[in-house]
Design a protein around this nucleic acid. Structure first.
Length: 106
DNA sequence: AACGTGACTACGG
DNA sequence: ACCGTAGCCACGT
């Protein structure tokens, strides 16, 4: 018995985010099936059962701002990982215009 | 079963 | 342009 498609789908989307790219909650939610899942996406990442397989640090809000209540390691950890991916982070902000994943399809 | 909360987004004033 | 409120979905108490 599997958990459920909802969260699994969200995790699958996040896992598919290519290196050096970021995605917004709304985008992940839209790709998962419903844009209104933005909050659910946040919760799904909050429970983050596999932080090593699910790069939740590549998921940012609509502003391109990273989460304040980041879970595994701290926000500083997320910024470090993003920079390691080749993403420029400014005060916890990412330039979505340059790094947002497949924003074209949006 | 119902209310409240939350890593969100969008619209209105 | 900024701040406040509304909408949506899932989970915990």
């Amino acid at each position: 018995m599997e958990q459920k498609n909802s969260y699994e789908k969200i995790y699958d989307i996040v896992k598919q985010i290519p290196r050096g790219t970021v995605a917004t909650y709304g985008q992940v939610a839209a790709l998962a099936g419903n844009k209104r899942w933005a909050r659910v996406v946040g919760y799904a990442l909050h429970v983050n059962p596999d932080p090593e397989g699910i790069p939740c640090y590549r998921v940012v809000n609509r502003e391109g701002r990273v989460s304040e209540a980041f879970a595994f390691g701290g926000e500083n950890r997320q910024i470090g990982l993003l920079e390691a991916d080749g993403i420029e982070v400014k005060d916890g902000c990412v330039d979505l215009s340059k790094y947002q994943w497949r924003k074209e399809i949006f």
